[in-house]
Design a protein around this nucleic acid. Structure first.
Lengths: 216, 216
DNA sequence: CCGGGCATAGTATAATTGTACTATTTTTAT
DNA sequence: ATAAAAATAGTACAATTATACTATGCCCGG
């Protein structure tokens, strides 16, 4: 039986350290390292490549999506398991397209995590209910034509910057002033974000920002 | 050296189970039980009273605040440690008044958690930077008169109901229709919530709901 | 039985957000 | 080098939210 090297990135120290304990208790995990954000995880990987990387979607400094993109680009042999708080379909689909190997909610059982680790390491993908529901929903929506064809939730850096300021309770005017932009420009970015993530009001924006780990 | 019984409530199974492992590794912790929400925790306590209860602030079914209120009322001898994701001052102050014994961010070191457990069990309160900053900020705000005197963040049930619907991206009109209320009534509730929690726009509302565990 | 908080509902106005476009320049990727 | 994507800025109008009040009936605790 092969044994695996597993790295984990999560900004919540308590959770992360507890997870390290848990992972070490798994029979076929032989080495565990942890990082508190995506950047540090990448540094670890550069130094020594693991079999599996467990990445929290919600992280400051470098969020889960960006981290995965980097890992896949530089080390495609590393299998990635995403941990997420909420089963927000939008970016899960996006990340599946990116080539992530598993998605787990933070309220799964430890044994399921263990299964997922072995599955991605050996069979490349771990298929669970979360993934199934995302796929099903995507099909349904495409069929009924709701949210026409799912514009990818690929927020640009500028858009992310503005989203963060929105979440700091700044108005369009204040953001314009802060970034030395016309109010119209800010408004346009705002609209573009809303279209990309498929919402139509402020509430949707803030929820997305939370769920995607853009704000914490 | 006395040893302690510790219970933990958190809806994220992975985190909770990992925490159970961690807690069991502490020298002076002799027994650990876990519950996935406030209700279950109360049931456990009813059956057998622990020395310390660790409660996640963000929980569905019965949120942290409500859970603590119940514990303090029925079992004042149980020491309570609140775990919170974000250092949102507002309800920390409120919960301090309620008589909670410690506040820890989820990104503290395991050793600090250990210290906190022993401290609350023996000395009744664990004082850390988070608590200090909340107290300091409260003093400052009272002095400068911002947010006049801190109206308690005690959202009523009706208000909570409306807040939840706001977070589901419903407009005032839609909420009014859904609850068979006048739009004006809904608007008034909305304003009252905003005043109670000290925000002045939708973004603040949604962030509060997230941080307080009212929505997940 | 009385005050206070709560839920209800109203009026009126200001401010901000949401929708729907066009258009120019800059940056990026092939 | 060129096409696509991103960032910039604009106009105009509709819809919603935010602010600031008044007012009434209800229920609960002292």
């Amino acid at each position: 039986m092969r044994k695996f090297k597993v790295y984990i990135a999560d900004d919540h120290t308590l959770f992360r350290k507890a997870m390290v304990n848990l992972l070490r208790s798994f029979d076929r995990v032989e080495e565990v390292k942890d990082a508190e954000n995506g950047k540090d995880l990448l540094a670890l990987i550069k130094y020594d490549v693991p079999d599996v990387a467990i990445v929290d979607l919600q992280m400051p400094v470098m969020d889960g999506a960006e981290t995965c993109e980097q890992i896949i680009k530089k080390h495609p042999e590393v299998k990635i398991i995403i941990l997420t708080m909420h089963d927000s379909h939008k970016y899960i689909l996006h990340m599946m397209e990116m080539g992530v190997h598993a998605f787990l909610l933070k309220n799964t059982e430890p044994t399921e995590l263990e299964k997922a680790i072995y599955s991605v390491a050996e069979k490349d993908f771990y298929h669970n209910d979360l993934v199934a529901s995302v796929l099903r929903k995507n099909i349904t929506e495409r069929k009924t034509g709701q949210r026409p064809h799912f514009k990818h939730a690929e927020i640009t850096d500028r858009e992310k910057e503005i989203l963060i300021l929105i979440c700091r309770e700044l108005t369009i005017r204040e953001i314009g002033y802060k970034l030395s932009l016309s109010e119209n420009t800010v408004r346009n970015h705002r609209v573009n974000i809303m279209e990309k993530i498929g919402v139509n009001n402020t509430v949707g924006l803030v929820k997305y920002a939370y769920d995607a780990g853009i704000v914490s």
